[in-house]
Design a protein around this nucleic acid. Structure first.
Lengths: 221, 221, 221, 221
DNA sequence: TACTAATCGAGACGGTACGTCGGGTCTTAAT
DNA sequence: ATTAAGACCCGACGTACCGTCTCGATTAGTA
């Protein structure tokens, strides 16, 4: 209702950004853990800042000093966990879509893995909660996309580019759009409970996307 | 205190469902209008049951008697509005995707109209709010899909079936899945702020979906 | 907060007093019984009009039509029960303080009986509840006094008058005031939890009241 | 309903008593003032916790944190005001019943002052409201007696003891009981609207109580 | 190594909204 | 016309969290 900050304006000083060199690492870790644990236990919706603070053994102010909202905290906690997981992967071709030369097979393989992941409750709770918040809070939504969604999608872009180089995908195709043909349907079915998801379904998506749905010699126009 | 209906199980009584024959039509309409107006004015998130009641000139209890949550109220209000709009259409081929014989053109036309609609703030507010709630509340999410999403998608199914009959779409294609190739990407970009949406973008989606992204003579395996 | 009715004023007609000839005797009895039962079970405070109506199997309106408040209902129910009890007494010298010729003994006897009554939970609940309401609602308070309190006190007046005739009480004494010397202290101790009540205590009150507390030859000016 | 004392037992935790050292004095004062003002303006019955909070510019929780009910708040506010008034009295023989040597005159004087006080609306509103609550809530009633009633009565005890020392009151008289002969009748008439109160009435009470109502040489058996 | 300013745990505070209860009025159908 | 039933508008309840604001009691980085 009331406008509050709009960065600087003196008068009421701009809140004097806290000194991050003095920040307590221990508290940060405790907050991340508490946030993720609570999201898992009671669901994103029912998590409260007070609850996180209590669980982490931390004052509320310590949270408000470094984050601006519950979504912020959970998002960072989630990203942090992802990064932690990423670092655990042996250093080589860490995260990439396999390239066996058979594009269809590679895509089907990755999408099947994605199906498995989506059905894992540990992922589901924070992922859904954040996504929901993101629908309605544009700033957060864009951060969500940039931090959690786009990096995964870029792996598809890479794989599709390789396929273009190999002459398996038409050169005039925009890979960033092309990947949506099979990724977005899966995303929507899962996120919105818009339909069942299965290996068969994702396999079908890949086939349709690669070869199109039109009849081969069909006279379009 | 006294058990009334639903024979056994007692203990914590099932709350004695209200008598819907005596329901006040006036209040219901007022509540729908208040809910939609408020969602438009302050955004779904900031709407409260208390606010709806006050705006509608209605006791809070009257809302709680007939609905179980804000999402419930707004959903029903939204559906009601849609139905009202539907009834206003002259009785003929009310809602359908045009069939000019040119499938690509027809789909592009409809998707362009969808783009326009998605960018209309009047639609956006309740749609997003409900979608967000639906991500996180499965029961609501399924209702959302059934009431608001699936009916629109069925129009695509019809059009694609017609195209199959006309030999423009392969007979082995499942239209319910096929439509997702171009609908879901648009939905995701819009809902999740996952990318820009434009006529050019939707046109591209249709082209990719119809003809596939693979090279014509590409050797897959 | 807002004044609403103030009896007549035309405009909004004075509510058209109900036709008492058509009143349902059965409902009235049921309401009395429900009211007294509930007061006994959950305490005056927690009794609600809704509760009485439900227990009596009666519509709320039927109560509001004939009574103006919970206090009203309970009061009438209580008075009704008293009258019922009174009628059960064999017609003779129904209710009176015994007159053995020994005033002190007679008063002590009656007060001891009163102590017993006051400690009977069946009496206590509605009596206290009504008294409390009466403190704060003058109209009700006066009715309480007239219906429940004064009739008992008049029995003392009669007995004291007899004592005056017998020359045991000074002729210039006002019996209506005199009785308060021993009745009011007991009443206050009980009502307000202002002190313990016992036979010894009431005996003492009678002695003090009869003979005074001043020293016999004390020179009071 | 709520567990109150019995420290441990957990399960449903005992609500973690707030830290009284950090209590806001400003809020407490504001609450007292608001409570007394409202009781004066709209009457004890119509005062609500919500109203007190609003008037005091305080959150409801701040009231619920430190008091358990409206009666509690008003009582404390009332006691606080009494103590404040008491402190304002010049330190000497602050509050005592005058001792001119003439017991009857002294008592009549004090009772006349009490009559005046009882008829002062500023006293009446909270006094009656609290008394009413006290009838029906034993715990509160006893607190009421201890804090507001008994201290006044002790003044009579002192004066009567002095009179005993002076040989004006019989030595075997219990002053705590004796005072009730004239105090309780006045209290009952006022509290319960049980009869008119006037100087003449209280004078009469004193006379009756001092000398008794029995005939001097009356043969009691 | 001591100083001193920021951060920390804790939680009281002014608020908003929750979901529930009951008051008193009004409407409906059955008697 | 009264009744049982109960929906209605309304006001207050007591609770949960919000985000802000003190409080000592630690910590660091600097002097």
């Amino acid at each position: 209702m009331v406008q509050k900050s709009t960065p600087a304006r003196s008068d009421t000083p701009p809140k004097a950004a806290p000194d991050s060199t003095r920040r307590s690492e221990k508290s940060r870790r405790a907050i991340y853990e508490a946030a993720l644990a609570l999201v898992g236990e009671v669901g994103y919706q029912k998590v409260t800042i007070e609850g996180i603070a209590a669980r982490a053994g931390v004052g509320k102010q310590t949270i408000y000093r470094w984050w601006s909202s519950k979504a912020d905290v959970v998002m960072e906690a989630f990203v942090d966990r992802s990064e932690q997981a990423a670092e655990a992967v042996p250093p080589g071709q860490e995260y990439a879509i396999p390239d066996t030369g058979d594009l269809a097979a590679d895509l089907k393989f990755v999408l099947r893995a994605t199906v498995d992941e989506l059905l894992d409750p540990a992922f589901e709770a924070p992922y859904r909660g954040l996504a929901a918040e993101g629908l309605v809070n544009e700033e957060l939504g864009r951060r969500y996309v940039a931090k959690l969604l786009e990096p995964s999608l870029q792996l598809y872009v890479q794989r599709l580019r390789a396929a273009q180089d190999a002459g398996q995908v038409r050169a005039d195709i925009d890979p960033r759009i092309a990947l949506e043909l099979f990724v977005s349907p899966l995303a929507q079915r899962w996120l919105q409970y818009a339909g069942p998801i299965s290996y068969e379904y994702t396999d079908t998506l890949v086939d349709y996307a690669l070869h199109g749905i039109a009849s081969p010699g069909g006279n379009q126009r």
